[in-house]
Design a binder for these strands. Structure first.
Length: 105
DNA sequence: ATTGGGGCCTCCG
DNA sequence: TCGGAGGCCCCAA
C-alpha cells in the first residue's frame, strides 16, 4: 500500500461533522513528521467526491489549503454542520476527531 | 502576528 | 542514480 492510499484510509475514519489535522493523520500513520507530505497526498487526490479532504485542517485551527479552493472547503464544512468564521473552525474542541493508528500500515 | 528552520514525499533535470 | 525544489505543514522564537 502506498503513502497516498494510507492517508485516504485514515481520512475515512473522520465522521461527518468532525475534522482532523494534517499532523494527526501523520501520527496515525506512525510518521509524526510527515504532515507536509500528508498535505501533498490530499492535494493529489484524484476524486473530489471521494475522500473528504476538506475535513482536514492545520493543527493551529486555521483551514489550510484545498485543491478546489478554500471557499469550496468552507462550503463543504458548513454543509457538514461545522461553523467556520474568519478562516477558522469555531468550537474546535467539539468537532476535532483523533484518528486511530492503522492496523495495516 | 511574523519568521526562520526543519523533516517527509515527489517530481524533474 | 543523485541532487535540488517545492508543497493543502509544524514548531519554537
Amino acid at each position: 500500500m502506498d503513502f497516498d492510499e494510507s492517508v485516504y484510509r485514515v481520512l475515512m475514519q473522520v465522521p461527518v461533522g468532525n475534522v482532523t489535522t494534517y499532523k494527526m493523520i501523520a501520527c496515525a500513520l506512525g510518521k509524526p513528521m510527515s504532515s507536509r507530505a500528508v498535505g501533498n497526498a490530499l492535494g493529489r487526490n484524484p476524486d473530489p467526491d471521494g475522500p473528504p479532504c476538506y475535513r482536514v485542517i492545520k493543527s493551529d485551527g486555521s483551514l489550510g489549503g484545498y485543491a478546489g479552493g478554500v471557499p469550496e472547503k468552507i462550503r463543504r464544512l458548513r454543509a457538514d454542520g461545522i461553523t467556520v468564521k474568519d478562516g477558522r473552525v469555531v468550537y474546535l474542541e467539539k468537532v476535532l476527531f483523533t484518528p486511530k493508528p492503522l492496523k495495516h500500515p
